[in-house]
Design a protein around this nucleic acid. Structure first.
Length: 275
DNA sequence: ACCGCTGTTCTCCG
DNA sequence: TCGGAGAACAGCGG
């Protein structure tokens, strides 16, 4: 999301939005497409809160965006077709920015710019490690009270905003913490390791993804850039032990049983990894 | 060709 | 309240 924000800022810089138009799809949820199509002029600010983007256009019109699982913003030239394009910003430099999203889990919801930050669920988001900074104490306070498994708690956007399935797994691997740890059982030293691991994971992701296109999904890119995510059955990048996977909160969790030892975890059943 | 995955979140139950 | 299951949807790889 942060990479998407940076790309959009660059693409809009010094340009004007001359026409916004969109197909009538569920990406608008409750909001009205015609308000999207009323957007125009300069992009005055683009703020990211967790996985949400808040656009403020000249004239006070705004937009809340979310990429869902498969949404992305791509820049094309006028007339070029983009598969699964759902909404489009036509700029005065001959470029068109498409919001492309095959599964339509993403969202584009126009709203008056001054109201964007107060919108549910944006108003419910927890601290954003990148935008707000995050100390070990703040992390412990936000996540330590959860009775969910640690990884599930890390992904709870009301506790901490921005971590998804990949980054949560990666951060836990870097911190050497088992995903099923009870948040209340972490020591101050472990919170410190975790906060540093979250920072490292975000930094790595930003470096990895910089450029115009979403790298991991980019065509031709088949290499897995992550330390444990998607490596079930393969060797741990650190110790060679086979990476395992299991389901937590409806999502697949990948971890190394040796680097992320179980201590004080509640019962769960790792299965040998596939792939 | 079919099956079972998938970078998310919301709603509906018990 | 909380937590798990299912749903919303389409594509891709085994």
């Amino acid at each position: 999301m942060e990479i998407a924000r940076r790309n959009l800022v660059r693409w809009f810089s010094g340009r004007r939005l001359v026409r916004a138009e969109a197909d009538d799809t569920r990406i608008f949820r409750g909001a009205e497409r015609r308000h999207f199509e009323e957007l125009s002029g300069r992009l005055e600010s683009l703020v990211r809160r967790g996985k949400y983007l808040l656009f403020a256009f000249e004239g006070g019109r705004g937009l809340m965006g979310h990429l869902g699982m498969t949404g992305k913003f791509v820049r094309r030239t006028e007339g070029q077709v983009e598969p699964h394009s759902r909404a489009r910003f036509h700029l005065d430099d001959g470029h068109v920015i498409h919001f492309s999203d095959p599964r339509m889990f993403g969202r584009m919801e126009p709203a008056p710019a001054p109201l964007l930050r107060t919108l549910d669920p944006v108003g419910l988001l927890g601290r954003d490690p990148l935008a707000d900074g995050l100390t070990a104490g703040q992390l412990a306070e936000a996540v330590g009270s959860s009775r969910q498994p640690l990884k599930v708690a890390l992904m709870d956007q009301e506790r901490l905003a921005g971590l998804g399935n990949i980054h949560a797994a990666e951060a836990l691997f870097r911190a050497g913490l088992h995903p099923s740890r009870e948040p209340g059982s972490l020591t101050p030293a472990e919170w410190k390791r975790l906060v540093q691991a979250i920072r490292a994971t975000i930094d790595f992701g930003l470096k990895e993804q910089e450029g115009e296109e979403p790298v991991y999904l980019e065509e031709g890119r088949s290499e897995n850039p992550f330390l444990v995510y998607g490596r079930a059955g393969g060797p741990c990048s650190q110790c060679g032990t086979p990476v395992e996977s299991f389901t937590q909160g409806g999502r697949t969790t990948h971890f190394c049983p040796k680097c992320q030892p179980r201590s004080g975890v509640h019962a769960s059943k790792p299965r040998a990894g596939k792939r």
